[in-house]
Amino acid sequence: MQNTDNQTVVICTDLSKTYQQGLIQVHALSNINFEVNKGEFICLSGPSGSGKSTLLNMIGGLDTPSSGKVYIDGEEIDKLNKSELADMRLHKIGFVFQAYNLIPVLTAQENIEMVMQMQGVSKNERHHKSLNILQEVGLGGLENRKPTELSGGQQQRIAVARAIVSRPSLVLADEPTANLDSLTASKLIDLMLQMNELHNTTFIISTHDPMIMQRSKKLVKLHDGKIIDNIIQKNNV
């Protein structure tokens, strides 16, 4: 993956999403305009219900907008069919969710290798890369553990490892620290920042954890489905 500076990875224009919840129309997102450049580490913040997850799902192509457009690497994802969307996620996007990130019947290493396997990476290379990344995320030696045999923090680290192992253009993390204690959470953020630096991977993280907001390079505040603030923070570690 080439590493050109200031390449725009994500562009959202006039993005809106309305849900019908019973008799009530919920405006989850309204008129979002939003851009993300290569190598950025962005934090989406806001109270629950502010539209963070919805926005992440739109960018990841897991959900379709009611109006507006999303471009990933210059490609309008609205125009992609289900299968093309899946391919896009497979090759360009990594996901980290709040919980249940891992397939319970697969070991740590198999979970990491799974995506590469689908990408058609050779067995040897998969093996090599997955062990490397396990080292990088500090879980060397735990490759044969099943998810149930790992702590919450370890599970999230593996999720991060899986998200970045095949060098995607973009990693989307939806409240990755919500289920972790503050120390573990801080370590996970360290890991993500480190990976951001090391591989120049773009991260978009949704959170309401002030600690993460503080440490991100850019902070986007959402409220009632609208962007209310867009702050570039230079003062991070």
Partner: peptide
Amino acid sequence: TREFGLFQALGLKPGF
């Protein structure tokens, strides 16, 4: 259900 959602998020197709 969650797992199948995850598979899709990870880029695996419905056919898979």
